[in-house]
Deep mutational scan, measured.
Amino acid sequence: DETGKELVLVLYDYQEKSPREVTIKKGDILTLLNSTNKDWWKIEVNDRQGFVPAAYLKKLD
């Protein structure tokens, strides 16, 4: 059920640097789980959840 889920576009590649982070690729469109922290957003990638720098993402309307 995708209702109410926010999507984000990945602006730059990011390689995870800790187990709490996930790797993302430029151009991916992913589900945003939590954006309350202005610097690190929690997203879902391939059934994995983790954090990436918010500056690497853009919210889609």
Results as ranks from 00 to 15, higher is better:
Glu6Cys: 12
Ala54Arg: 13
Trp40Ser: 03
Leu11Cys: 06
Pro53Phe: 02
Val22Tyr: 03
Lys59Gly: 04
Asp1Asn: 14
Gln49Val: 14
Trp41Glu: 00
Gln49Asn: 08
Thr3Arg: 08
Ser35Gln: 09
Glu44Gly: 06
Val22Thr: 04
Leu7Ile: 08
Thr23Tyr: 03
Ala54Gln: 07
Glu44Met: 09
Lys17Trp: 03
Ser18Lys: 08
Gly27Tyr: 05
Ile43Ala: 01
Leu30Gly: 15
Trp41Gln: 00
Tyr12Ala: 14
Ala55Ile: 15
Thr36Val: 10
Asn46Gln: 15
Ser18Arg: 09
Thr31Cys: 09
Lys42Gly: 05
Lys59Ile: 11
Leu30His: 15
Arg48Val: 07
Arg20Trp: 15
Leu11Lys: 05
Leu11Ile: 09
Asp13Trp: 03
Ile24Pro: 00
Lys42Cys: 10
Asp47Cys: 10
Val45Tyr: 13
Phe51Ile: 08
Gly50Ala: 07
Phe51Arg: 03
Glu2Gln: 14
Tyr14Cys: 01
Asp47Met: 10
Leu30Gln: 06
Ile43Cys: 04
Asp28Glu: 13
Tyr12Ile: 08
Phe51Glu: 04
Asp28Met: 14
Asn34His: 06
Gly50Ile: 07
Val52Glu: 01
Val45Pro: 00
Gln15Trp: 13
Arg48Ile: 07
Gln15Tyr: 14
Ile43Tyr: 01
Thr23Asp: 03
Asn37Met: 09
Leu57Ser: 00
Gly27Val: 00
Arg20Cys: 12
Gln15Thr: 14
Asn46Trp: 08
Leu32Val: 07
Asp39Glu: 12
Lys5His: 14
Leu33Glu: 02
Lys17Asp: 06
Glu6Thr: 14
Glu2Arg: 04
Glu44Pro: 00
Asn37Lys: 07
Leu32His: 01
Lys26Phe: 05
Asp47Ala: 08
Leu9Arg: 07
Pro53Ala: 02
Lys42His: 08
Tyr14Asp: 01
Thr31Leu: 14
Lys42Glu: 10
Lys25Pro: 01
Trp41Ser: 02
Thr31Ser: 09
Trp40Ala: 02
Lys26Met: 07
Arg20Asn: 15
Glu44Cys: 09
Asp13Thr: 06
Leu57Asp: 01
Ile24Tyr: 04
Lys17Pro: 03
Ala55Arg: 14
Lys17Cys: 09
Pro19Ile: 09
Thr36Asp: 15
Phe51Gln: 03
Glu21Ser: 05
Ala55Lys: 14
Val45Phe: 15
Thr36Tyr: 10
Asp1Tyr: 14
Asp1Cys: 12
Lys58Gln: 13
Lys59Glu: 05
Asp28Ser: 11
Lys59Val: 10
Ile43Leu: 08
Glu16Leu: 08
Trp40Phe: 06
Asn46Leu: 15
Leu11Ser: 02
Ala54Leu: 02
Lys38Phe: 08
Thr3Ser: 14
Ile43Val: 15
Ser35Phe: 07
Lys25Leu: 08
Val22Ile: 10
Lys17Gly: 07
Lys5Ser: 14
Lys25Asp: 03
Asp13Lys: 03
Leu9Ala: 05
Gln15Asn: 12
Asn34Cys: 10
Val10Ser: 04
Ile24Ser: 01
Thr3Ile: 13
Val22Arg: 02
Tyr14Val: 01
Pro19Thr: 09
Arg20Phe: 14
Leu7Phe: 10
Gly4Thr: 13
Lys17Phe: 06
Val8His: 01
Ile29Gln: 04
Tyr14Ala: 00
Asp1Thr: 15
Lys38Val: 11
Gln15Ser: 10
Lys5Arg: 12
Gln49Cys: 09
Lys38Pro: 15
Lys17Ala: 11
Gln15Pro: 05
Asp28Asn: 08
Lys38Ala: 13
Thr36Arg: 11
Lys26Asp: 02
Asp28Tyr: 07
Lys58Thr: 12
Tyr14Leu: 01
Leu9Pro: 00
Gly27Cys: 07
Leu11Val: 07
Ser18His: 12
Val22Lys: 02
Ser35Met: 07
Gly27Gln: 02
Asn37His: 12
Tyr56His: 11
Val10Thr: 05
Thr31Trp: 12
Asn46Cys: 09
Ile43Phe: 00
Glu2Phe: 13
Val52Ala: 13
Lys59Ala: 06
Val10Met: 01
Val52Pro: 00
Leu9Lys: 06
Leu57Met: 04
Val45Asn: 10
Glu44His: 07
Val8Ala: 07
Pro19Tyr: 08
Lys58Val: 14
Leu30Thr: 05
Ser35Pro: 07
Ile29Val: 10
Arg20Val: 11
Val8Lys: 00
Asn37Thr: 06
Trp40Val: 03
